[in-house]
């Protein structure tokens, strides 16, 4: 009897510890896509759907010859260099320079929350008495485009610190969001971008989750401009007939945390262009 109890207790402990952490999740996703697309090298996933869509890729490469996001990079550089009303500027908030997109999202232990780049930019503005930027459309995309361009080639390396259980909770929250069906159409992120990746909805090939975060902000032909990752989250939620959640709210930030962690090891290549 005692033996059985001990075995049961041990089993319970292993069941708890066996709960997959960020690295186990990432490896499972890699294994899944490798089985699905055996000929696609890992680094290709940074190119989003074009890693698995040879026809769309030709068109995309042609667009990249004259990148539609270029003017936004220039406008962003001007923003970066222009002093605020108090004489300070972004440079004072981010002394290591604009090549810093790989530092986000990160766990902010002091505030107990996931810090994203757009949030950090607005914190800088607010600290200097400037008006914060909107999180989906408009000038935030200029400064993000400039920072992304300066950060090209940096490797994603999101850490979920073990010394703060709230960090793992935020990661888990993002993971749960990813796997939860929502909206009247009852899709989860996973339904389209994991289970059915590579298949077509109408003429659109469903993109893989790995690499979803590498190229932001994105110039979308559908938008006719550059937009943020959280704008895309909203759009996706809208498509499945779920009410979009707040851009830079906790849910989307945690989702970004989870998604970016899954893309660890991939190179940043924003801004980018998509259909």
């Amino acid at each position: 009897m005692k033996k059985i109890l001990i075995t049961l207790a041990l089993l319970a402990i292993t069941a708890v510890t066996a709960q997959a952490g960020p690295e186990e999740d990432r490896m499972a996703f890699i294994k899944y896509y490798k089985a699905k697309f055996p000929s696609v090298p890992m680094e290709e996933y940074a190119n989003g759907v074009y890693a698995i869509d040879p026809i769309g890729r030709e068109n995309w490469e042609a667009i990249e010859e004259f990148p539609p996001y270029e003017p936004f990079i220039d406008a962003g550089q001007a923003m970066w260099e222009k002093p605020f009303a108090n004489g300070k500027g972004y440079k004072d908030c981010f002394p290591d320079g604009p090549a810093m997109a790989d530092k986000y999202p990160s766990w902010d232990k002091q505030q107990g929350m996931v810090m994203t780049l757009p949030l950090a930019l607005n914190n800088c503005l607010k600290a200097n008495g400037e008006k914060p930027l909107k999180y989906k459309k408009g000038p935030i995309n200029n400064i993000l485009a400039y920072i992304a361009f300066q950060s090209r080639g940096k490797v994603i390396n999101v850490e979920v610190p073990k010394d703060d259980p709230r960090a793992m909770a935020a990661y888990e929250d993002g993971k749960k969001f990813y796997f939860t069906r929502r909206g009247q159409l009852n899709f989860s992120c996973a339904t389209c971008h994991l289970q059915n990746t590579g298949l077509r909805v109408r003429t659109e090939i469903l993109s893989p989750t790995l690499g979803h975060v590498t190229g932001w902000p994105v110039y979308r032909s559908k938008w006719g401009t550059v937009g943020t990752l959280h704008r895309r989250f909203s759009g996706c939620n809208n498509n499945i007939r779920a009410k979009a959640l707040e851009a830079q709210g906790e849910e989307y930030r945690n989702l970004e945390y989870f998604l970016t962690s899954l893309s660890n090891g991939l190179e940043l290549n924003g801004p980018s262009a998509r259909k």
Binding site: N196, L199, R200, V201, R202, T203, E204, L206
Partner: peptide, 12 residues
């Protein structure tokens, strides 16, 4: 779903 003779079907 593909339906015969209908344009631009998906294949999920």
């Amino acid at each position: 779903h593909m339906i015969e003779d209908e344009p631009t079907p998906g294949n999920v």
